[in-house]
């Protein structure tokens, strides 16, 4: 028998089925991004959908409790990972930003090295998008709470 822990059977079942599948699908899109539709942006958006749904269903502070400052910091870290991969290729002797042929860590064959550097970039983009969306919703909710409190 299903425990009635949070807000009825509809919310409970939708949480149990939607959130794990959306997060796993986001990870699949992130890992297969270099030769399938989708990429870092879509993976980050899917991961953030999982987080947002669980926070809306289970309550604001119970799950995935990423604070506003932490999410801004992590979004910056994701952008830095993206830029750092491009700088690594420039340091390896490339003529332009993100020329994967000059990635300094040599992995054979060449297309596998391309795949690994694209994977690094996608991790950065996914982190940035996910944390930005979480931070947007947090900002909306927090600001309206302050307005309600002041009134």
């Amino acid at each position: 028998m299903m425990k009635d822990a949070f807000g009825g059977i509809v919310l409970s079942t939708s949480f149990r089925w939607l959130v794990p599948f959306s997060i796993v699908y986001g990870v699949i899109i992130l890992c297969l991004g270099e030769y399938s539709p989708g990429g870092g942006f879509q993976a980050g958006a899917l991961l953030s959908v999982g987080v947002l749904l669980s926070r809306i269903i289970l309550g604001w502070d119970t799950t995935f409790d990423v604070k506003g400052t932490t999410s801004v910091w992590l979004a910056g870290a994701g952008t830095f990972l993206y830029a750092f991969t491009g700088w690594l290729t420039l340091l390896g002797g490339a003529d332009y930003f993100l020329d994967y042929n000059f990635f300094p860590i040599h992995i054979e064959p060449m297309h596998e090295m391309h795949a690994w550097s694209i994977f690094l970039i996608e991790i950065g983009v996914a982190t940035c998008v996910m944390m930005t969306i979480i931070n947007l919703l947090e900002a909306i909710v927090k600001r309206s709470e302050e307005n309600v409190g002041s009134n």
Partner: peptide, 26 residues
């Protein structure tokens, strides 16, 4: 273009969540 369709799908869900959260708060 399944890529754009997928993005639109996810962003549509996220914007709906945003709107409903704002409506609930205000």
């Amino acid at each position: 273009s399944p890529d754009v369709a997928f993005t639109e799908c996810v962003i549509g869900a996220i914007s709906t969540i945003f709107f409903v959260a704002v409506l609930r708060k205000i």
